[in-house]
Design a protein around this nucleic acid. Structure first.
Lengths: 194, 194
DNA sequence: AATAATAACTTGACAGTGTCAATATCAATG
DNA sequence: CATTGATATTGACACTGTCAAGTTATTATT
């Protein structure tokens, strides 16, 4: 039996991801660097290279964590919602908004155009799972000309766009506190199958 | 009469912005740097500092150009549209999508969470003008519970979200070529005042 | 158990980055 | 013509990601 005990403090990879999330949370995307990461985890500046081939790989790893948190945020709001298809969609949106507002830096990393490793299996799995949450809450919507895909895209675009705009104009138009209400207001009428 | 002939090649500031847009167009946000910018404009690495106090100021300048292009892209599509409120909204969206797909790097800079100078008067003016285009095309929509602001936010979120998702999954779900059709499909039914 | 092999980490170097201070040069004004 | 102020250059600094080489710790082999 092979005991995997990498000779640092258990699992450096996890510690690095943790440190990265912390940096993002503190100072946003601009505050994230491999060397700070390493320093925060208490290792030398080149240590991360053994767990993340390059910066893109590290970013992909952090995105993976982001999608997981994302999925959880939506699901836990859905659990609290009354058993009504529209209420469930509204709840998922609240989860989305909560996540983006509590993790602005990570959100920017995930959806700001930062290059990612498209062959990262974990990342692809995590993002797919997040998309599946969305897919499920859209099932009850009656299909129109564009089929269920158009419904999903409509909901996804709407909530993603709102989340971005809320972050984008924290000081202006859209009040972050009232973003839940705004979400309820802009979600168009939907027809559900009975 | 004062001939303003700064002793380089006319107007370095404009040349720097041009070079910046080119860098963004070629290699995306990751390809943009002040030193490349300077080199591309044929000046020393510290020359830009006299026209842009720091990187944020440069970014703000590029964003300003982006919003201007943005406004033009929407307006020129609107001009071609039949005089029907829904068709006009669809046209503006096509302009939005065209801009984002032809200027991915600039779009990422504008909406990827990159810090900006919130006191930059030109930037604020340019972004406001872009928002005004949106506001105008939403005027014919009958106001609901959220007033006209909710209508604007709905359209804005929807098209912005779609644009991001199209860029985000160029290779996957959403076909960039068919993004116009997708936009038509996900725009919900709207009620217009007669 | 001793030794070899492999993985994890460190150290040092390199080119590239934004920014600042000091210097030089040009354009226009007195 | 001399002064002045804006404009650009040069050089330095700390910081970044990445690579090569060396060191240490863990695992595997004989």
């Amino acid at each position: 039996m092979t005991k995997k005990k990498p000779h640092h403090h258990g699992n450096l990879r996890a510690a690095l991801l943790e440190a990265g999330l912390e940096l993002l949370h503190d100072g946003g995307l601009e505050n994230l660097s491999m060397r700070k990461l390493a320093s925060k985890a208490g290792v030398s500046h080149a240590a991360p290279a053994h767990h993340f081939a390059n910066q893109t790989a590290l970013h992909s790893g952090l995105m993976t964590e982001g999608y997981k948190m994302f999925t959880v945020a939506m699901q836990s709001e859905i659990k609290l919602a009354p058993n009504d298809p529209r209420e469930i969609i509204l709840a998922a949106g609240r989860g989305y908004l909560t996540f983006t507002q509590e993790n602005e830096g990570l959100f920017n990393l995930m959806f700001g155009g930062t290059p990612r490793d498209h062959d990262d299996a974990e990342l692809n799995k995590a993002s797919e799972e997040a998309y599946n949450v969305l897919r499920e809450i859209c099932v009850p919507i009656v299909k129109g000309e564009g089929g269920s895909e158009a419904n999903e895209l409509m909901i996804w675009s709407l909530i993603h766009g709102l989340a971005r705009l809320v972050l984008h104009s924290k000081r202006d138009t859209i009040n972050a506190e009232k973003s839940f209400e705004t979400w309820r207001l802009i979600l168009p009428p939907l027809e559900f199958a009975t």
